[in-house]
């Protein structure tokens, strides 16, 4: 436990001093502002294009923007922020293994499980802070310009996103326990996402896949209710736990 706390503090210090935390939070802030901004600008863009389009015979009606458009942008833009976070953290384990910075600490009795778990905790902390910051900003602007009460289940939808991000972070933990570089780790994460997307083509499986958690728009519109996401949420949490539990013995055996 002592090792875990000491190493966790080291991780946080690393995030702060290497400015990684600041940059990631800036990304989440930008995305948080972009969501309502894009929604707000959509009618303006249509106006500008209207002349061209009418020449081609397409007539646009009056576009009415609501908070739902802003939250639809949230769903569209969040993957980008998550990808930036995953790329930033892809080498968090492997770079320490290959550089040998862990050796002095491991030979002092720091357990490898502490290393795995405290880095996981630091990543979860960053993801949670970033995601909810982004959520808060989008929430504030959407309410300022329109009315959030027209959109359902905002908090739950964001929780689903959080859980999906947790799964992807646990993929980093798992692939890092045997990969040689951050690029390999990210390749593994990409493969997992690709496999989930492929499986999602099969409509019967869709409801149970973690990717379901990213599908927030039906929830916003009230077409689906939180209980429709329960199966996917439970499965995602279970897979995340299994990935971390598998990573512990694998890291234990790993050559550092």
């Amino acid at each position: 436990m002592k090792g875990f706390i000491a190493f966790f503090e080291k991780e946080v210090r690393e995030l702060v001093r290497t400015k990684r935390l600041l940059i990631l939070l800036a990304v989440f802030v930008i995305v948080g502002i972009m969501d309502p901004a894009v929604a707000k600008l959509t009618p303006k863009l249509f106006e500008l294009m209207a002349d061209d389009l009418s020449e081609q015979g397409i007539v646009l009606g009056e576009v009415k923007v609501t908070a739902l458009d802003s939250w639809t942008q949230f769903v569209k833009n969040m993957p980008m922020a998550l990808i930036v976070l995953l790329i930033m953290f892809g080498g968090i384990y492997t770079s320490e293994y290959t550089k040998g910075t862990l050796i002095p600490l491991l030979t002092k009795g720091l357990s490898r499980s502490s290393v795995v778990l405290s880095k996981l905790a630091a990543m979860l902390l960053t993801w949670s802070a970033g995601l909810w910051l982004c959520y808060g900003i989008t929430y504030f602007y959407s309410d300022w310009y329109w009315d959030n009460s027209a959109v359902n289940r905002l908090g739950f939808a964001c929780f689903c996103w959080w859980l999906f991000g947790v799964l992807m972070i646990c993929c980093i933990v798992f692939f890092s326990s045997f990969s040689g570089s951050g690029a390999q780790v990210l390749l593994g994460c990409g493969a997992v996402y690709f496999a989930m997307t492929m499986a999602g083509m099969y409509s019967k499986a869709k409801e149970y896949l973690p990717t379901r958690l990213c599908d927030s728009v039906p929830l916003y519109k009230g077409e689906l209710v939180p209980s429709d996401y329960t199966a996917a949420a439970v499965i995602t949490a279970a897979i995340s736990a299994v990935l971390v539990l598998a990573a512990l013995p694998l890291t234990h055996r790993r050559q550092v």
Binding site: R17, G100, T101, P104, L106, K108, G109, S111, R112, R253
Partner: peptide, 22 residues
């Protein structure tokens, strides 16, 4: 792996690597 004996050893690797930001 995790050996308890490391508690009574101090080790200097041939090329020691530390955290540059500390």
């Amino acid at each position: 792996g995790n050996t308890p004996t490391n508690g009574c050893i101090g080790y200097l690797p041939d090329v020691p690597e530390f955290y540059g930001y500390m």
